[in-house]
Design a protein around this nucleic acid. Structure first.
Length: 255
DNA sequence: ATGGCGCATGGAATGCGA
């Protein structure tokens, strides 16, 4: 079973890269973020033609999340329960017996800003719901997406300056998620030095590997022993007109 | 090496991402 996450930064612009990627990689489930389109513009026909079902929650211009799957997604849920939010940042579905939660975590702009407060409130609501609701109900659960948090020094280019994505409150919120009962699947495996998932479009950042690891796949304790591999796929970041994020791919042993 | 790119909106210039 292969589960992946990819912030495509506009599904409209990246559709053909996405279809190529599906055709090459054949994931069982793919979490997408930053669709940047309304549901009525979601390219459902093209995705169906590629052999995939889709559950999606989009809006104009910003945000938007989806879960693509090779079998019909079950029990689709939109948004964080009991957290009023105009921004479409969370969708969950069950695929082949695995509960999959796909999140586009707020960026936060800068510590002290209103957007930063929203980021921490969003993280708190997510953590409370996972701990009290989703994890007890679904022992086999995966939380995947663009977390907009680089959890450790290892996840940040040594010359990265600035607070956002790496600040103590953001990292504390990430640890709180882990403490609910999740494992960072990427760190279960040996990885290349300086492994990142996002590189700024500017200043030749990708060429210099000046990046951050902010896209993650967390698995519940019950799934730990099923993890077989987890890696960043840098290939799409090398294409013409790429997303600034690369996909992260998890392989689970089939039951 | 982060004002410097790319995307969306709207039809130029601005907001936003990370």
């Amino acid at each position: 079973m292969k589960i992946a996450t990819w912030n495509v930064n506009s599904l409209k612009v990246r559709l053909h890269q996405l279809l190529d990627w599906l055709n090459t990689n054949h994931p069982d489930a793919l979490c997408l973020q930053e669709l940047k389109l309304e549901d009525k513009a979601f390219p459902e026909a093209e995705i169906q033609a590629a052999g995939y079902y889709a559950a999606f929650s989009g809006q104009k211009t910003y945000n938007g999340v989806a879960i693509l799957s090779s079998t019909p997604p079950e029990d689709v849920m939109y948004g964080i329960p009991n957290f009023a939010d105009e921004q479409k940042r969370l969708i969950a579905a069950t695929v082949k017996g695995i509960r999959i939660v796909c999140g586009y975590f707020p960026n936060g702009q800068a510590p002290g800003s209103d957007k930063f407060a929203y980021k921490l409130a969003w993280l708190d609501a997510l953590t409370c719901w996972l701990k009290a609701g989703a994890l007890p109900m679904h022992p086999n659960i995966v939380l995947a997406g663009d977390f907009n948090i680089a959890p450790d020094t290892l996840d940040v280019h040594p010359e990265w300056k600035g607070e956002i994505l790496v600040s103590p409150p953001e990292r504390a919120a990430f640890r709180s998620l882990i403490e609910c009962g999740f494992i960072d699947a990427f760190r279960l495996f040996e990885q290349p030095e300086h492994s990142y998932s996002w590189w700024d479009y500017r200043a030749g950042s990708f060429r210099r590997n000046f990046g951050l690891r902010i896209d993650h796949i967390l698995v519940s304790q019950a799934l730990r022993d099923a993890c077989r591999a987890c890696a960043v796929d840098k290939a799409p970041r090398k294409l013409e007109r790429p997303s600034d994020h690369a996909p992260v791919v998890l392989e689970l042993a089939s039951k």
